[in-house]
């Protein structure tokens, strides 16, 4: 299902895919990140946890190349993401990364299937092929029956599954999710997490989730806890889960 060539030579499953070394980032007088180090293995599912204001969402944005750190570096394979210019980082995000947010952020005037096919159409794929691939992803996310519905006609859980399908339709190597179940009730949240972890595992997609919720984190292989802009002391020596 890949629509573009990836920018890296892919590390073997279980080898380090994404790493943070000595990350510092300040916004004015606020030190959001104060020296963050860790590694995430290819195919791993990791939860970044921490209290409000701990710097976990900022860390996600730095890992994904949306923000650049003041000090330190983010490596994706052999690429130093934090050393790339804005245009190269945008290309990398398009080709290799997918994003899911707390509120699906679907385009309200488009049906579920059109929302999912958008990234493929933007990449130049024919409409017929794009719709075929979008339907296959909706099927994997167990929402194919709702393909023609508008976002307002979907439940919260269904909308989030459509958003996940849209994030995965370009076959990203890494899926970043910021509080993906934050707006859902607990049973729906569990179902979304089960689907999300199944689908990313089946497609060998590395999953990085920011969450404050322990139940959501329990679907991942391990957690990295951030406190006051640092990896919390109980986690500094934890290694990636090599599967």
């Amino acid at each position: 299902m890949n629509v573009s060539s990836t920018t890296i030579s892919e590390p073997a499953f279980g080898e380090t895919l994404l790493s943070a070394q000595g990350l510092h980032l300040s916004f004015g007088l606020t030190h959001a990140l104060r020296g963050i180090d860790f590694e995430i293995a290819h195919g791993e599912r990791v939860a970044i946890m921490g209290p409000s204001g701990s710097g976990k969402s900022t860390l996600l944005h730095v890992l994904a190349g949306v923000l650049t750190p003041d000090e330190g570096e983010v490596r994706y394979g052999k690429t130093v993401v934090s050393g790339l210019g804005e245009a190269d980082r945008a290309r990398l995000r398009l080709s290799d990364f997918g994003f899911v947010f707390q509120f699906g952020q679907l385009i309200p005037d488009l049906s579920a299937i059109d929302n999912v096919s958008i990234p493929l159409l933007l990449a130049g794929m024919s409409r017929k092929r794009a719709l075929g691939q979008a339907r296959a992803w909706l099927d994997q996310l167990r929402v194919a029956d709702h393909a023609s519905k508008l976002p307002t006609q979907l439940s919260g859980g269904q909308a989030q599954c459509v958003a996940i399908a849209r994030a995965l339709v370009t076959a990203p190597k890494v899926l970043f999710a910021d509080e993906p179940t934050g707006a859902l009730d607990s049973l729906v949240a569990e179902s979304v997490m089960e689907t999300l972890t199944d689908v990313t595992h089946a497609n060998r997609t590395t999953l990085v989730i920011v969450t404050h919720d322990a139940r959501t984190a329990s679907y991942t292989d391990r957690e990295i806890v951030v406190r006051d802009g640092r990896v919390s002391s109980g986690y500094t020596d934890r290694q990636p889960a090599r599967r």
Binding site: R215, S218, Y219, D221, E223, V225, S233, G234
Partner: peptide, 26 residues
């Protein structure tokens, strides 16, 4: 002594247990 460290390792133990139970729910 380091109370934060003590609480963090306890938290990590709990999260590992949650993972076990979540897997059992499958």
């Amino acid at each position: 002594d380091d109370a934060v460290h003590l609480l963090e390792i306890q938290k990590s133990e709990h999260l590992d247990k949650m993972r076990d139970i979540t897997r059992r729910k499958r």
